[in-house]
Simulated assay, not measured.
Amino acid sequence: MKIFRSESFVDYKTYTFNYATYCIKEKKSELPEIYDKGFLPYSNNTDLKVETYYLARSLRIELSDYKETSENRRVDRKIQEINPSFEVIPVKDFNLKDPVFLSYCFDFANKRFSEPISMNRLEYIFSAKSVSHVFRFRADGKPVGYVIAIIENDTLHYWFAFFDLDNPKYSLGKWMMFSVIRWAFENDLSYVYLGTCYGEKSLYKVRDFKGLSYFDGNQWVKNVKSLKLKCRADGNFVVDTFKQDTDLFLENLNV
């Protein structure tokens, strides 16, 4: 892998000089290490020819600490009314270019994603060589959702999910995430990565699952209380966290 940094925002008054950190994947076998270092796939520039990853506050479940919660069980009980099931399909056996499938994902994305997504970007995401499996979900025998996953060795990244919005009472999105995590646990994987965790809207991931830790830019931290505080404070930072409380920051690094 190749790690590089790009200059970002500057605030000379507080001596804050930001650098965005990226990683280029050179071999598929590097994926577990790339995720362990806090990187996630970057898909915002569809002209990029190499698989690039960005460093962010990301979230993962350490499956050695995983336990089902009462909320997981509640969602699972409720959805049994519509006879749910799922299958795990290698991408070589699934047509990611099928127009009906693309239209389904495109329609969902533009109803639920915070920013509109183009069909070009959707096709770019699905063409990533690291995408390895599709989880296809059914209810009463009909397809109701898909998860695009990256699986390598003991690592699974729950990258994008698309699902029917017609029956919100069944919490289909929650059940799909829970099902993938449980599948990973039952298949002896070590980690499930759930993407970024910024802002209060991301806290549903924190509330619903056990065994969580987040990447703080230096290390994986299991203190969920501090993560909630960070999410609620997002958008209000004046300077970086090192300058906000230098002693505490260094203490957390064991310096």
Rank of each mutant, 00 (worst) to 15 (best):
K2I: 14
R5T: 11
S6Y: 15
E7A: 11
V10W: 11
T14M: 01
Y15T: 07
K25V: 10
K25S: 07
E26Y: 08
P32A: 13
Y35P: 00
D36A: 15
P41S: 14
P41W: 05
N44S: 15
T46P: 06
D47T: 14
V50G: 01
Y66T: 08
T69G: 06
E71I: 12
R74S: 10
D76W: 08
I79P: 02
P84A: 13
S85W: 05
F86P: 01
E87L: 05
D93I: 01
F94N: 04
D98V: 09
V100M: 09
C105A: 15
D107Y: 03
F108N: 03
F108I: 09
N110D: 05
E115P: 00
Y124T: 09
S127W: 03
K129R: 15
H133C: 09
H133I: 02
V134K: 00
V134C: 10
F135R: 01
D140L: 09
K142W: 07
P143M: 07
P143T: 08
Y146C: 03
I150E: 00
I150N: 01
E152G: 02
D154M: 12
T155Y: 07
L165Y: 10
P168F: 09
G173A: 12
M177Q: 10
M177S: 11
F178G: 01
V180K: 03
V180A: 10
I181Y: 06
R182K: 15
W183A: 02
A184E: 02
F185P: 00
G195I: 09
G199Q: 00
K201W: 04
S202G: 02
V206D: 04
D208K: 04
K210P: 04
Y214C: 05
F215I: 08
F215V: 05
G217C: 03
W220C: 10
V224Q: 07
R232V: 12
N236E: 11
N236Y: 13
N236L: 08
D240N: 15
T246E: 05
L250Y: 13
E251T: 09
N254K: 14
N254W: 05
V255S: 10
